[in-house]
Design a protein around this nucleic acid. Structure first.
Lengths: 209, 209, 209, 209
DNA sequence: CATGAATGAGGCTTCATTCAT
DNA sequence: GATGAATGAAGCCTCATTCAT
């Protein structure tokens, strides 16, 4: 009922849950699995989380927040050109996730939850916010590049940021699906293509397709 | 065990299952839900599929196959330049999926299943094959463009194809998450950037980052 | 509903059912198993038997009748002394069943059915009748031996017949349980002991124990 | 999975299961029946037994062990002659089981399980061991009688013990089948015959039959 | 506070039986 | 007559959640 707040113990449970959910998925993970991994009793989990779903959502929030914080940190790097900063950001993003690829299945679980759970909306909007936040960060960089003349004034920052982020995400997905896939290399190649494209993009009206 | 094969009836169940799983997700969907949507008795489902998981996998295969067939068809379009053909392909892909965005949660479910189910491997490798197939199609197009001089000889077809497909995929994901997001526009913008990038890509050795 | 009567087809089903029930037991045997072993369709079984239980009961009756007929035949053998005739009978009984020991589990199934089924009484009384019939046959032999002076006048034919039959039955059970057990030898030894006992039994009042 | 071990609670369930299985048979008994008779919830049964079959096997073991212990106790009785001790043993055996004849159907169920279940072998070998144990006890008594001169040196202790035990068993079966049958009287009569036979058995080579 | 024994709702699956062909 | 596709009742078992210790 009343959620206790000892943060160390709460984090311990969250940590165990992250591992458990990543390993077996939401449905296949039993509360007792989490409790065992956390080295506590089953009932104790309910002292800190009101239900399995609540626990999962808190795991979700934690992972999203960490991810966001990390992105913010990378984006804030003061290095040289915008292109260079995007390259650094892309590399950091890929490396971080590739290092913990076994957690990537959590992302799948989150999306699945967002698509299915009774708490669909809670998940969806948290997703949306995170995405928009990251997209905003990247779009701001692109705009900076447009102003500095690095990129063509025809660039559409928000759309390109969406595509870029999506590309990174999807490359990680492929790496997770296929362990022989070199996501880092692919992300570099693709980013280079996009940077080149943004640089050279011609100023012309779109024609209907 | 002994699966019956009357294709019409099987397809009827698959169809009902697609809707049910898309609406409520794998776990929340009960066999009886599928049966009711198919207008048949619960036991009948088991005449055609050996278990809930088997049904889900067959749904998965069906959706993947349809998706692949569609892509093949689009790729085979005889239109003009490679760039144009990629534009047509991207538009077709986006439009098709945006039309049935409510099915997109199925994709989430599939990924989740691939990450969690005991049949993890079955899902993963089916995924891999589909992805590789599509990637091969797109990579071949890019190579064609390289040979025809439309794209720079520095292009790396496979990596770029991976990124492009991933980008499309991720834009759909964003559209599904956020109904205000215009995925079609974003895909056009991003493709244009990439085409421009592929066209202008300079011939230079990569420097380490 | 209406039971058909083509005896050849009915017997075919009974035969298949005997094998099926003996192999897997009543509960684990499915109607479809019987149908397959009989080389017919599932529905056809219901043309000849009104239910699974009915089929089982008919199998039971068939086996009991065959067994009884066999015993009658053996008992009717015109050979010499009563002792000799009992020896022949015991040997025949043991040999017959040892030859088809794999069917012995049917007996277990029958008893189990008699103990549990809704049709408990039907089974029990059929059992009782068969037992009483066989017991009567053996008791009559013993009485014949008493009259001819072969056995002591103190013999109690019915009780001894019960014990003798039970002994035979139980020795078969042991053989079925334990394939290294030589039931035939044991039955000969025990019968010899009992014959000797019946011959020499002293005429004395029973003392309370 | 993880079986709890509180013996009182476990025994409570076993006791309820003994009654339930004896009354309705294995198949017809539902776990909830056992739970209700034990005054607990359905799920609790699974805290102590991993499956219905496991519960049944434990019931089986319990009954077999109790039976064996009882036999051991009776056999250890210090009374006079071997013949007398066998008489006491027979009477004790019959009286004990006649007192709880309603449990006898359990024995039927056990045999049926031994013939049918997937765990056939587990049941069969437990049976075998119990039988052999009891047979050994009785055979030892007979040998003792042979050495003391009470029984003929021609006696074959193991075979006779088998037959004797089988006879007792089968008489109980008849009593269970037919409530008018006086199994105690029959067992006394038959034992007397066998004792007389063992006493007087002539020393002669067996002739083939 | 922490625990884990107890609980029962809920879902998958089996299979005897029916009945249209 | 024979068949087997369709059905749904029924039961085993899991596991999130509660609550007494």
């Amino acid at each position: 009922m009343a959620r206790k707040s000892d943060p160390a113990k709460r984090d311990n449970i969250i940590g165990a849950a992250i591992r458990a959910f990543a390993q077996k998925g939401y449905t296949a993970t039993r509360i007792i699995d989490v409790a065992r991994m956390a080295g506590i009793g089953k009932g104790t989990v309910y002292e800190y989380f009101s239900s399995k779903e609540d626990l999962f959502f808190c795991v979700f929030q934690t992972v999203m927040q960490e991810s966001e914080a990390q992105m913010k940190a990378v984006a804030a790097s003061p290095a040289g050109s915008v292109a260079r900063r995007l390259e650094v950001m892309g590399d950091a993003l890929m490396r971080t996730w590739l290092d913990k690829l076994e957690l990537y299945s959590l992302v799948m679980e989150f999306w699945s939850a967002a698509s299915a759970a009774s708490s669909r909306q809670r998940f969806k909007s948290t997703f949306q916010n995170a995405y928009r936040g990251f997209r905003g960060t990247v779009a701001a960089l692109i705009e900076e590049g447009m102003h500095s003349g690095e990129f063509s004034p025809s660039c559409r920052p928000v759309e390109i940021a969406s595509g870029l982020i999506g590309m990174w995400d999807a490359l990680l997905l492929q790496a997770w699906t296929d362990s022989t896939f070199d996501a880092l290399a692919a992300s570099r190649v693709c980013l280079e293509v996009m940077l080149q494209g943004m640089h050279r993009l011609e100023v012309k009206p779109k024609e209907p397709i």
